[in-house]
Amino acid sequence: MSFPEELLADQEEIVLHLRGHWKAAVAPSLVLILAVAGLTMGWVMLPPSEGGRIGLLMVVAIMVYYGSRYGVQPLLRWRCTEYVLTTERLLIQRGVLVRERRDLPLNRINDHTMAQSLLDRMFGSGTLTIDSVGDQSAVLAGVPAAQLVQSTLYELIELAPADDEEEPVSEDPARAAGRG
């Protein structure tokens, strides 16, 4: 899935387009598998009597609740979260039904830290916390190749022009060309 180009400025280019690490989808997938297994066991093992049908309805209700709450919902949240690092800003886009997009200009970022648990270090993922001017911060949880993302972010911040820098305006075009 590519990021919509119409959201980018004229000279802006996508450097990294990321989604959360795949390890975030493992536990919800296991919950879904267990919910389907529970449904199947209830259907096969409960007798076809009135009490068995009531028991089966209870098993269906419980498995559908847990499967959707702890399986489908986290999977959708993981699938609908994107981190896009461009030459000018960091875009964080979240949301299944209601889309939330947050932009952090690179020239306003003043600190970024990375945290990795033992499991994160084994998979190469991590959590980036990015602080910007004005006490705003963004947390990118479960970023794949977190060290690469952090070093790329550092390089782009160094290349980003500062807010107070303006293009020098020359009064004499011949003098600006070095002829005067």
Rank of each mutant, 00 (worst) to 15 (best):
W22S: 11
L56I: 08
G42Q: 03
V64E: 03
Q150V: 07
T40P: 03
A9Y: 12
A138Q: 01
D135V: 01
M122A: 05
G95S: 06
E12T: 12
E50Q: 06
M41F: 13
V26S: 07
G71S: 11
E158K: 11
L118T: 06
L104T: 14
G67I: 02
V139T: 11
E5K: 15
W22H: 14
A9N: 08
V26H: 08
V15M: 03
Y83R: 06
G124C: 04
L39H: 10
T152S: 01
P47F: 06
Y65N: 10
L16D: 02
E12P: 14
S2D: 15
A9R: 07
W22T: 12
P74D: 02
V96C: 13
I62Y: 05
A177C: 02
E6P: 09
S170V: 14
L85N: 11
G126P: 00
E167L: 13
V96T: 11
L8A: 03
E155W: 15
Q11V: 13
Y70V: 01
V98C: 02
A35D: 10
L148I: 02
Y154P: 02
A174P: 14
H21D: 00
L76I: 03
N107H: 13
E100R: 11
L104K: 05
Q73R: 15
A162V: 05
L90C: 10
P173E: 02
W78Y: 15
S29W: 04
T127R: 03
L97M: 15
Q147I: 00
M45V: 08
G126L: 02
R101H: 08
D172C: 00
E158G: 08
L75I: 08
Q116M: 07
H112I: 04
Y66H: 13
A61E: 06
L57Q: 13
P4G: 06
E13R: 15
E82M: 07
P144D: 00
V133I: 15
A37F: 10
S29H: 05
L34R: 10
S2K: 10
P47L: 12
V133H: 14
G134N: 07
E6C: 12
K23N: 12
V169L: 11
G51H: 04
M63K: 13
T152Y: 00
E165K: 02
T87L: 14
T152Q: 04
P168D: 02
P161V: 05
G38S: 11
L156Y: 03
L8N: 06
P144E: 00
Q136E: 14
I62L: 13
A141S: 09
L91G: 03
A176V: 01
T86N: 04
D120P: 00
A61Q: 09
G142K: 00
E88H: 13
Y66S: 05
I92G: 11
A145Y: 00
V139Q: 06
E5C: 05
R69C: 09
L106P: 05
T81A: 04
A61T: 15
G52W: 01
L16N: 06
N110H: 12
